[in-house]
Design a protein around this nucleic acid. Sequence first.
DNA 1: GTATGTGAACTATTTCACAGCT
DNA 2: AGCTGTGAAATAGTTCACATAC
Lengths: 209, 209
Amino acid sequence: MNSKKIPQAVISRLFIYLRELTELAKVKITTISSAELGDRTNLSDAQVRKDLGYFGNFGVSGSGYAVNELVEALEKILGKNKVWNVALVGTGHLGSALLSYPGFKSHGLNIVSAFDISPKRIGKAIGDIKVKPLEDIKKEISGKKIEIGIITVPAKSAQSVCDKLIESGIECILNFAPVALNATENIKIRDVDLSREIETLSYFLVNKK
Amino acid sequence: MNSKKIPQAVISRLFIYLRELTELAKVKITTISSAELGDRTNLSDAQVRKDLGYFGNFGVSGSGYAVNELVEALEKILGKNKVWNVALVGTGHLGSALLSYPGFKSHGLNIVSAFDISPKRIGKAIGDIKVKPLEDIKKEISGKKIEIGIITVPAKSAQSVCDKLIESGIECILNFAPVALNATENIKIRDVDLSREIETLSYFLVNKK
DNA sequence: GTATGTGAACTATTTCACAGCT
DNA sequence: AGCTGTGAAATAGTTCACATAC
């Protein structure tokens, strides 16, 4: 068992393993080697072993990993058995798409509130969530025990929304605005920059011969 | 000017600089130092200089970088002046959200075709794109000079869609399916795994004290 | 024989620090 | 004086390779 700081990339890969292992369990495969799991996830056998090694000794020499046992361990480590309440701020194109995207709920993120600054959008319902004005953030977040904030506002208002969320007690933010948010160390901000993903493809096309 | 292989992360940051520089140009700032640009993008001054150094000597000792000049250079390097035709496969929740997401077009990606396997969806229009059956992929891609494919199908069909796209001549894929796609070296695949972004937040919440 | 767990080697990336330019 | 460009140092992350366990 390793006690060093665990890289973010390791955590991210753990979810990949878990996903694959869940598939394996469905087809009644009970044991898998790091090499086989690596093959299926496009990762190396050593990487699989090292990643898992951060959290414990799950493997059995000579045979490999017990699928069900490992699934259970990973789910616990990763908090897959929990459900979190989420607030989404910014109900434009991307925001409303995310509101109706079932991927959140199926991964334990339950969007319970949505906010916007535009009077046109306030009061409207998207799915079964009614859009509330920005001023209600603090009240809603403490009232509904919300622990995660999703930011889908334009770049220029992202920082002020971020500040407001933190002020309301949120410690964990998923930021879709294409801007660097500032916050103290104890706040976890995860950036998803769709434009950049898209744009890098363009770079690739320009620069291939 | 550096001729070594340029890391993907550098390209990605170049877009961040470009974005910030564009904002600066709007407010008529003509010169900026690496330190200031780093501050505004949450990156270090050394990183800014090193990243830019891969592509040329844009800076002026003692004063910094000329904003307009650098914007122009970056736009050229990154292919921002080009527009690409894009096909999207899979018109479920995420797929249709992306079809109506304006971020693609504003970044030079013009979605011109959408495909699905489900008879329920084929023939329907999303925005101004009519959903076509999977069998039409090859014909459409060569006919409309499509160069980028977006995959938003479930994990289990992602590989076969990927193969079909490549077979049709696509060399550049944006993959939203949560699965590792296999393709030869010359094909550029960029994975966007929304679920994983979401899930890692859950890990953070479980593991903070 | 097979496959893990893990130091050691290697590779990639970031930061430092400073000579040199304006 | 101020700031770039860049080798060198430091740090982070991945792969190797093998002693050890079943």
